[in-house]
């Protein structure tokens, strides 16, 4: 039954465009070392070649350290998308697991999870991550994935819990249970496939939330450490030269916005496709 939703998604022009953009970003990230014209950390001449405007030689210009911005944006995709994907997977998995646990076990487990969600959802995520970064000191990308992912599971948990509780009442589950299927079998074979589209929506939304978070973290100086390029820290260099070096802002922002926008569009279309399926044509 979910297959229908996927097919409907691929019939949608907006969804195809979004998938195209995301796919391009993933390809750029995967093949950055081969398609980037320069080493993203190479500083040919940090005095004479700093902040050079876009040209044939440097299509996206150079940054304050004379590094090639195009190469940095391409390599930045690796870090930014890598962190975003990792954090997204972590938060969705964590959210799904905790949401499922709360719904299936119920009782005090449900109380604890729901309470936790209620509390954490009130906290601004940026400040939570800043507090954690300050607590654990400087961050490797892996730590960043853990912190951002660990703070982003709330909505997923909420959705999964609600969906599970809903499905647990449905006839097919009751029937399966009556036939003697184990709890885990029901979860694995019936409930998870049923919420898969919702999980996909949650994943797309999580991706859309994480990329700007990484940028904001860089903006306060606590993001990915140099010389590793990320869209956030390229943008940080750009904010110093907002009026004098537009290329340092425009290209990383375009990368961030296109990716986030595509993830959002995808989430939207997915939701419509699911709704269409539930409501019938």
């Amino acid at each position: 039954m979910a297959a229908n939703a996927w097919r409907q998604l691929l019939d949608d022009r907006g969804a195809r465009a979004a998938i195209g953009v995301l796919g391009a970003a993933v390809l750029a990230a995967a093949f950055a070392p081969w398609i980037a014209p320069y080493d993203p950390t190479l500083q040919p001449d940090p005095v004479a070649l700093r902040l050079v405007a876009p040209s044939w030689q440097h299509p996206f210009g150079t940054d304050p350290f004379s590094r090639d911005v195009l190469s940095r944006v391409l390599h930045g995709a690796r870090v930014s998308l890598g962190v975003a994907t990792g954090a997204m997977l972590l938060s969705v998995t964590l959210g799904a697991a905790l949401g499922a646990l709360a719904a299936v076990v119920g009782g005090w487990v449900d109380g604890v999870v729901s309470g936790l969600v209620d509390v954490l959802i009130a906290m601004p995520r940026l400040l939570i991550v800043i507090a954690l970064v300050a607590t654990f000191g400087t961050l490797s990308p892996w730590w960043l994935i853990a912190l951002i992912g660990g703070s982003g599971w709330l909505t997923t948990a909420r959705i999964v819990r609600a969906e599970f509780r809903d499905h647990l009442q449905r006839e097919y589950v009751l029937a399966a249970r009556a036939l003697g299927a184990s709890r885990w079998r029901i979860i694995w074979h019936h409930l998870l496939p049923a919420v898969a589209p919702q999980l996909a929506v949650a994943a797309a939304l999580a991706l859309a939330a994480v990329i700007p978070l990484e940028a904001a973290l860089s903006f306060v100086g606590l993001g990915i450490q140099p010389p590793l390029p990320s869209w956030g820290n390229i943008l940080l260099d750009g904010t110093d030269y907002l009026t004098s070096a537009w290329w340092l802002v425009v290209f990383p922002v375009a990368a961030v916005s296109l990716t986030v926008g595509s993830a959002l569009v995808l989430a939207d279309r997915l939701r419509v496709a699911i709704a269409g399926e539930e409501h019938g044509p």
Binding site: P212, A215, F219, L235, T239, V256, V260, G261, L264
Partner: peptide
């Protein structure tokens, strides 16, 4: 509106 959501907030503020 898609742009409004996708643009980092601090950049809008700085601009």
């Amino acid at each position: 509106t898609l742009g409004g959501v996708a643009m980092p907030e601090f950049l809008v503020a700085l601009l």
